[in-house]
Computed example of a mutant assay.
Amino acid sequence: MTLAPTAVHDETVVDLGSPYDLPRSLGVLQRGHADPSIRIDPGEFLGGARGTPGAGAWLCLRIYTMEDATSPPSELGQATLRLDQLDPSQVRVRVAASSESAAQAAMHRSAGILGCEDDWQDLEFLLDALGDRISLTLAQVRRRHPGVRLPATGALFDELVTATLEQKVTHDQARYAWRNLLRRHGDRPPGTAALTAPEWMRLPLTASQLRAVPSWEWHRLWVQPPLSATVQRMAARAAAVHRLGLSTPVDTFDVQELADQLTAIPGIGVWTVAEALQRSHGAADLPAVGDYHLSAFVGEALTGRRTDDDGMLALLEPFRPHRQRIVRLLKLSGFQHQRMGPKLAPEDHRGR
Rank of each mutant, 00 (worst) to 15 (best):
G304F: 15
V141I: 15
P73L: 00
D187L: 02
A139H: 11
I268F: 08
M312A: 11
T52Y: 01
L316W: 15
R306Q: 15
S18K: 12
G186F: 01
T307A: 02
P42V: 11
R211Q: 12
S333P: 13
P72I: 06
T6H: 14
T153N: 02
R237S: 13
A103N: 04
W216P: 00
S71I: 09
L244W: 08
A97V: 05
P342G: 05
H322I: 08
D308K: 14
W178F: 07
M107R: 09
R328F: 10
V289N: 09
T70S: 15
K343S: 09
A55S: 12
G282T: 05
G48K: 06
P53A: 02
L316P: 13
V231E: 00
S333C: 06
A240F: 06
L294A: 12
S228W: 04
L86V: 05
D15G: 05
V93Y: 01
L277V: 03
Q85K: 07
E67I: 06
S37Y: 09
T252S: 13
L130D: 04
G341Q: 13
G267V: 08
W58F: 01
T272P: 10
G115V: 00
A283Q: 09
S280Y: 07
F157A: 02
D41Y: 12
P321Y: 14
R143M: 05
V231G: 00
T6N: 14
L16K: 06
W222L: 05
L61G: 08
R237Q: 14
V14W: 01
T153P: 15
T12P: 01
R109G: 01
G51K: 11
A163D: 05
L316D: 13
Q324G: 11
L86C: 06
P198Y: 01
V289Q: 14
A193M: 04
D251G: 13
G43M: 07
R144W: 10
P198R: 06
E67Y: 11
R62E: 13
W178K: 12
G311K: 13
D128H: 05
R143S: 10
H33P: 15
V327M: 03
Y176V: 09
D132C: 02
K343G: 04
L203N: 03
A111N: 05
V14G: 04
H185Y: 14
A152Q: 01
L61T: 14
L332S: 12
L246H: 03
A129P: 01
D68I: 02
S98L: 07
R233M: 05
D308T: 10
H322A: 02
Y292I: 10
G48Y: 03
L126M: 12
V270N: 10
P19M: 07
W216Y: 08
R144N: 12
R82M: 07
D291S: 13
L123S: 00
I40G: 07
R39N: 01
G77V: 04
D132Q: 09
G32Y: 11
G282V: 00
L203P: 03
E275Q: 15
A177K: 07
S99N: 02
I268V: 15
P204E: 02
K343P: 02
R142K: 12
E67N: 15
F253W: 11
V141Q: 11
